[in-house]
Structures are given as structure tokens and as C-alpha cells.
Computed example of a mutant assay.
Amino acid sequence: MASERRTLLADSAIDVLADEGIRGLTHRAVDRKAAMPPGTTSAYFRTRAALLTALVTRLVQLDQAELHTTTEELPPLRTVEELVNGMALLTRRRLTGEGRRRSLARYACAVESVRDPELREILVPRENAGREAVRLFLAAHGVTDVENRTRTLLTCLDGLVFDRLVSGGDVPREALEGLVTAALR
């Protein structure tokens, strides 16, 4: 029960952060969002730092699950078109619905992590099925510096998602094709 409540509070904190920004993230706001009595969030997460740590940890869990699901839905990435399709699916998920809310929260936490090494450590890109699929794709296409190119490609993809969160719209397919083409050079 306690772990379920912690998860509910962390999920509610993600929603508060997505809706109200970092300044709106308070214990009371999370209590309201979770429909819990006042003081519940502070009973589980005594400090703002503890609340942020729980929020970021949950965000990473949800992102990892999404990447695993996305990778399982796709065929093995053999062609540029298949990789671009996978990237397009991921960007759509990150820009709509719950994925959009998590993206907004993730970027707010990324800014906070500049001053908080604990948050930064949690947010460091993890090994996951999506990263491995890109790595294998690039290696199969003869890219020599696979680790660096994978990191660069995924960082650029992240930048496109951030741009579209701010400016609206979808990530253009041509932009995704351009990223893959550049990674293969």
C-alpha cells in the first residue's frame, strides 16, 4: 500500500509539474492532484528535494517502459525508413497525451538538475531497448564511432522534441531523415 501511494504521489507530482511548472510543484499541490488529505505528500516525501527525486525516478521508469514498448512494436531496424518510422513513433508519443506531460516535466527537471547532482544522476540517459536498437542499426551500416553517433542522434532527436513542445506541431519527417542521414555519414 505504501509503495502504491508513493507511486500515486509521484505520478501526481509529474502532472503538477507539467501543468504548473517548477514553481507550482508543492506538497499541497500534489496532495490536491492526488485527491489526498493535506499533509499526505509531506508525510511520504518530507522535503522538496525528496519529492523531486521521487518524481524524477518515476519519470525515468515511465520513459524506460515507453521505450521498451515502442521498440517491441517495431520490426528490427534494418533500413533508414524503419529507423525513421521508429523515431517518428517515439516523437509522436513524446508530443501527445501523457507523453507530452512527461516531456514537459522531464525538461523542467533537466533544468533543475543543473544545480542538483542527485537529480542529474537519475536523469542520465540509461541503457534501453531504443538506444540499443539505434546502436545496432548504426553498427550494421558501417558507422565506426557507434557510441558517439548514437548519443548525438538521440540528443538531436530530443532537441527536436523540445523544439516542438515549445513551438507546437509535429517533428517533420524530413528532419528525422536528415538526422539519420547525418548519423550515417
Rank of each mutant, 00 (worst) to 15 (best):
H27V: 04
A29W: 00
D31I: 01
R32A: 10
A35K: 10
P37F: 09
P38I: 07
T41P: 00
T41Y: 10
S42H: 12
S42M: 13
A43D: 14
Y44I: 02
F45T: 05
T47Q: 09
T47C: 08
R48D: 06
L51P: 01
L52H: 08
T53S: 12
T53K: 12
T53R: 13
A54I: 13
R58K: 14
V60G: 00
Q61W: 05
Q64S: 04
A65F: 03
E66Y: 08
L67D: 06
T70R: 15
E73A: 10
L74R: 05
P75M: 11
L77D: 00
R78W: 15
E81F: 02
E82K: 08
E82G: 12
L83R: 02
N85W: 11
L89Y: 05
L90C: 13
R92N: 15
R93Y: 14
R94H: 11
E98R: 08
R102A: 08
L104C: 04
A105C: 13
A105L: 05
Y107S: 02
Y107M: 06
C109V: 12
S113I: 05
S113R: 10
V114Y: 09
R115G: 04
D116W: 03
E118H: 14
E118K: 13
R120G: 00
R120W: 01
E121F: 11
R126S: 15
R126I: 07
R126D: 15
N128A: 12
G130C: 05
R131T: 15
A133S: 15
A133L: 13
R135D: 14
R135F: 14
L136N: 09
F137A: 01
F137G: 00
F137K: 00
F137Y: 09
F137C: 02
L138E: 01
V143G: 04
V143D: 13
D145C: 07
R149S: 03
R151T: 15
